[in-house]
Simulated assay, not measured.
Amino acid sequence: MNDTIKLLLNHRSIRSYLDKPLTEEQILLIVQSAQAAATSSYVQAYTIIGIKNQQKKDKLAELAGNQAYVAKNGHFLVFCLDLHRLEMAAAIESAKPESVEEALNSTEMFMIGLIDTALAAQNAAIAAESMGLGICYIGGLRNQLKAVSELLQIPDRVIPLFGLSIGHPANFSDQKPRLPISSVYHEDGYNQDQEQLAGHLHAYNQVISSYYSERTQGARSDRWTEAMTKQLQNPKRLYMKQFLMDNKIPLD
């Protein structure tokens, strides 16, 4: 097992950081690493906004659901799907507005932006962890995207998807056990043996229940299927489709 694999397998979310900012060199290397990620057809449909202003960090923490580690970290990045740059490129080349509009409004282009942004962010996360730093993804920014966009002066066709808090760990949290490989890796096609798949989930439920019970001295013993069902029964951020339409990403 090489050092890269060890780094990947050692990942855990860090939510408590020392009061020590990242250096400019660290920030630059993390962003350069993000840019080195694969990108569909060289589109590079993302923008990364670094947040140094403490008042903006504090406001983002509030908008994300009062998550303290959005405000207190070594550096905070906001990863945005960015189709605005493509629109600018087409204008420079005097492209036909109708065809540009059709392409930018397509579900395929939206998916390209999502995938490009996620790949870039994961490269950034791995780069940060390779420096001995800790990271935590912040999906809570999507709780109030209009307010986040206004705070960061984000134009149409740009969507802040998530944040990434980075810093020097104050302590290391436990790793959450992942699904068994047999649940996520199938060969030569999707395994549709429902009884077998359900068996994997029942076994995983026991692992997760034990993990929570040990971590909380018995105060919590959630099963994974129980937690996922609660999420499905309480849909979140149902305003998202309208927000995309308002920001000129209607998904034709």
Results as ranks from 00 to 15, higher is better:
191 N>G: 07
194 Q>Y: 14
183 S>E: 06
191 N>K: 02
166 I>K: 10
205 N>Q: 10
200 H>K: 06
201 L>Q: 13
173 S>Q: 14
219 A>L: 10
177 P>H: 02
195 E>F: 06
166 I>A: 09
150 E>N: 07
149 S>W: 02
201 L>K: 06
161 L>F: 08
199 G>E: 12
210 S>I: 01
205 N>C: 06
186 H>K: 03
211 Y>I: 04
196 Q>M: 15
160 P>K: 04
148 V>L: 09
152 L>T: 11
149 S>F: 10
148 V>S: 08
180 P>N: 09
198 A>I: 15
173 S>H: 12
156 D>E: 11
187 E>F: 00
215 R>H: 10
194 Q>I: 14
151 L>N: 08
159 I>N: 05
193 D>C: 09
221 S>L: 07
208 I>W: 06
151 L>H: 04
157 R>E: 09
153 Q>N: 14
184 V>K: 01
201 L>N: 06
157 R>I: 06
154 I>K: 03
188 D>R: 00
179 L>T: 04
206 Q>P: 00
190 Y>N: 09
156 D>T: 04
173 S>F: 10
174 D>C: 07
198 A>G: 10
183 S>F: 07
153 Q>C: 11
188 D>G: 00
211 Y>L: 06
184 V>A: 06
211 Y>R: 06
164 L>I: 13
216 T>E: 07
182 S>Q: 15
204 Y>S: 01
220 R>E: 12
206 Q>H: 13
188 D>K: 00
169 P>Q: 11
190 Y>Q: 10
175 Q>Y: 02
176 K>Y: 09
215 R>T: 13
212 Y>G: 02
155 P>K: 09
186 H>L: 00
208 I>T: 01
177 P>M: 01
180 P>Q: 08
178 R>E: 04
178 R>V: 05
209 S>G: 01
191 N>R: 05
206 Q>C: 02
174 D>W: 00
180 P>M: 07
170 A>S: 14
217 Q>A: 09
185 Y>K: 11
148 V>Q: 08
212 Y>E: 13
153 Q>H: 10
161 L>I: 11
150 E>M: 01
